[in-house]
Amino acid sequence: MSRRFTDAQRSLADHPAVGIVVPIVTASGAILVWTGIKGAFDISDYLLPSPLAVVHALREQPSLYLAATIETAICASLGFLIAAVSGVTLASVLSLFRIIERGIYPLTLLFQMVPLIAIAPLLVIWFGYGRPSIIACATIVSIFPVIANTLAGLRSRDAGLNELFAILGAGRLTTWWKLALPSSVPSILTGLRIAAGLATIGTIAGEFIGSDRQPLGVLITTNLRSSQTSAVFASVLLAACVGFALFGTVSVLGRVLFARWLRGT
């Protein structure tokens, strides 16, 4: 019944097919403009490679780019997962004990404020070269929106339901598990979606410091040094794809797995 209702409410802009077709049209337009500008102003390949050159770079070494993309995706996913689990846990602990919240929450702002590039070398010292420090980078960048959104969700629970749980004699932990956490699912998912995009950014930044493997961040830095701009473009494009895929996975999985708690939002 509700399904039919929402279908009727949907305008053309919300149609699923439109969500696929329109971005493709826009992307094609952007590529045309890109090619047009390059041709019109006669920009050299070193400054702006043509779209075809980027495709060519990709087709020259497909296995290299595939391996790099997978490596970056693994680090971004792991960093995201750590941020998601520890972010929700930390926010829950903070909301359960207000004194701790008063003390710790300002500190969690540090995750947001500290320039990542500045501490990335430190992370290498602490966690080790390669994957560990890269994953740490991804986690640090993406944990703050998880904490902030989870806390906001946990705080905004309905006062009437809160009273109901108090009357029924529910303790703090029970109230958190059966009321606060379920009712903050929508805002937790918002935090996770933001975190998914940020985790990829953090991963690439961590990879700039260096890795014992060849992820996309390393491909970007090495190709920049040798002025292979088309290869840089290809790597950046793939990095964006990783971020988009992670974001999409989190959105879809969240909507499917937590459908019950998203009702009415």
Partner: peptide, 11 residues
Amino acid sequence: FAFQEPRLLPW
């Protein structure tokens, strides 16, 4: 106790 609103958990 029954309140002015139903106070049901939507999930």
